[in-house]
Design a protein around this nucleic acid. Structure first.
Lengths: 188, 188, 188, 188
DNA sequence: AATGAATGAGTCTTCATTCAT
DNA sequence: GATGAATGAAGACTCATTCAT
């Protein structure tokens, strides 16, 4: 009745929502199946294990995150403008798709260590932009790795603060201020 | 034979190390007992549950984190200097006690949501310092909450980058550059 | 495209091989389907259940075993000669079709209890030959049931010993010695 | 309350009985626990897995079988007498402890292949006795391996025949006839 | 006749927790 | 306080079987 792809999508959506609301290890296969409207065994026709499902889900969204960054960055002329465009876009996405975003944020500490460093993601894009900015003499901070780390701090921490209640939603409201501070931080 | 406090310390040390190396939910009471050199049942003489043990462990270190920040901040004259002193101190601590620090970093996303916002911690300290700096006209960024969030980004993200391998250890090596960028970011 | 009988044969061959190599209950329908080159559901067009498939497979080969015994026995003049002819033939078959034979040997303990005693098989043939031998005064051992059991021991145990590595292959090499011993055992 | 050894014994007894009555793979851990009067989890304090429990059970009884054979054999003067003593003893044991014996008989085909050939057992004893008999010129059949195999056939097949209903119980009733036939078989 | 995704009862196993010693 | 065997609920996963196509 449903296309097989539909079942997979339902599983993914259920996993995303449940991991965000209860955490990955508190989410049982039974929860997953119920939320996706499938039988428990059906999950195993699509993923080899619960762990693999979550890992794949994280990886997909992680690399998609990187690709999204690449996409907005392309249309901007300078490194600073690129990073700001990313901030604006991601903050807007955080407001529009809170579940997807929280998933990425919350799973980071468990999932990232299991992903090989070579896998394409936000860090690569940040590094590339910073490298070009440094070469163009536009960015003062000369350490690409540190610059990427600081940039990610600007991107991630405000989002986390909104999640934890320390910063008022919507996140987009803070985009201008964050971009300004980010530009100053990397400038000299 | 051992003072009871000794047993508690051994349990805490074991929990810290195991949570860092395998994650909280992957750490079993058996693991804990083995690592602490006690019987499984003994844990329950000291904590009502495994969950409570980890929660208490996080909370202790979390508030201690805040208190450490307060302590260094006191001796500095300006907001900027205070924040930089904190950065330097914590980066040094990260290098000296990696397990303790990683525990805080990794458990954040699971443990923080369960801690009421009123509980004293780093966020309070950051906010207080920023508020004073804004009042003194020393800090341009006028939103205390956002400023605190950005500051935490500077504190946390470089540490995470070292953990994930994206930034070269030791973290202290980057303290100067981070302080400079942080000062610029908040300045205007 | 294929004649249906072909599919059945492929299923049977797959079941035989898998039961021998991993045991009946360790063999899954998925294994069976994969090895036979069919879909899992297809098995149920040919057999009502996995269990029924294996039971039928055993029964077929079990009665065929009996019929084979009957056939060689016919051309021999005395009971002793008949039993020896059987030994020779079966030992040769064991060497030629090891999988088929191991199936019979290994499934014995699970499958035999579920087969009613009336079902035609090796035991019937052995009993008939022995009865005729006793009547002809040619065989000293007067208990037909015991004689049949001892004969089966001569037939089965050397084969099992080869399977378990306690007796050197090929089994046929031992046919003469076994026949001689068997003849002596029943003689007096 | 119970000595721990008691729990283990109860588990073993339950496993023995259930494996005999329903087969190893049809026996669930739940069955085992119920029959032993323990909780399911308790089994895993004593054995690493259900499989390991059954394997250990088989191995224990298998080597004990060998040791029993050794023990009766000692008191007899000739190879023939030793083998007959074994037959008599084991047939009697089969009648007295049918469950234990059936376990060995029925599990043979699954369990034996997983036991390394070096493990001490009935085959070793049979071979040793036959070798001594051959050397003493007392036994005509010159192939030790084949002789051991034939002997095991005399030992095992009549027991199996009783289990399957082809031979009338008690097995001991047939001991004399079997001994006589065995002696003749090996003699010349 | 053939397919193979879906099913869901049932399996083995784990693990936080209890309690008699 | 300390122990560690016992618990049993709950977990992840399997697999024979069904059925719409």
């Amino acid at each position: 009745m449903d296309a097989p792809e539909d079942t997979r999508s339902r599983i993914k959506a259920a996993a995303l929502a449940l991991c965000v609301s209860k955490g990955a290890s508190e989410t049982t296969v039974r929860d997953l199946a119920r939320a996706a409207g499938i039988a428990e065994g059906t999950l195993y026709r699509h993923y080899p294990s619960k762990e693999a499902l979550i890992a794949e889900l994280f990886r997909e969204n992680y690399t998609e995150f990187g690709r999204r960054m690449e996409r907005v960055a392309l249309s901007e002329p300078t490194a600073s403008a690129r990073l700001c465009a990313i901030v604006r876009q991601e903050f807007a996405l955080f407001d529009r798709e809170p579940t997807l975003y929280r998933f990425l944020l919350l799973m980071q500490s468990e999932a990232l260590p299991r992903i090989p460093a070579e896998v394409f993601g936000p860090v690569h894009v940040a590094r590339a932009i910073l490298a070009s900015g440094i070469e163009a003499g536009e960015i003062g901070l000369r350490d690409v790795d540190l610059g990427a780390s600081i940039f990610l701090g600007f991107l991630v921490q405000p989002a986390l603060s909104v999640v934890h209640g320390g910063l008022e939603a919507p996140l987009s409201r803070h985009a201008d201020a964050v971009c300004a501070a980010l530009t100053r931080a990397l400038a000299s």
